[in-house]
Design a protein around this nucleic acid. Sequence first.
DNA 1: TGCCAGGCCCTCTTTAGGGCCTT
Length: 205
Amino acid sequence: MNHSSANSVIIFDFETTGLSPNQGDRAIEIGAVKLLNGVVVDTFQELMNPGFNVSSFIENYTGISNAMLYSAPSCAEVMNRFADFIGDDNLVAHNASFDKRFLEAEFALINRKYKGQFACSMLIARRLYQEAPNHKLGGLVEFKQIENDGTFHRALADSEMTAKLWLKMLEDMHDSYSIADPSFKLMQQISQKTKSGVKDFLDSL
DNA sequence: TGCCAGGCCCTCTTTAGGGCCTT
């Protein structure tokens, strides 16, 4: 048992210079939303300077320019603050394997370590919303008619939408399977079921 | 030398290939 609440979860999202920390890519922005019993109780958002220029593709994709990053604090400074923010709370991200790799890579550079658990909203959405046209974050926001301000590919905005998607999935679990308060562990278990087996699993609860 | 992500998941599958998803 860690010091955080059992009902506390942090939904987070990185913007980065590319797809792979193993290829030298770095984080340029981190955003996060802390949920306690389904309510937003805290947020985190900071740009960070990776120490080199990002490509024009990334500038266009995120709207984060090299000029914005030039005056931003270093990755080490921001990631230390983020490590303090998350503690050992459980984490959620959309396609979590991506954000997990960057979190571990950035933490390794500052000798910090995350000891909590990850859950992936994309893997769960693929099980729960098999009829959705796609399982991109933006596609699911549209499919589930989740309120948004039209901002995409910025860390806090994507974290907020992922948090709303997470809560929507909990709500649909309640409505469809009478699970009053699905635990983080249960959501992890859903993501580990096969697509065809998930309904039987939920019906058995 | 030249190449370069990685993991999940489906299928024309398991002695493999390719789409999806993240920036």
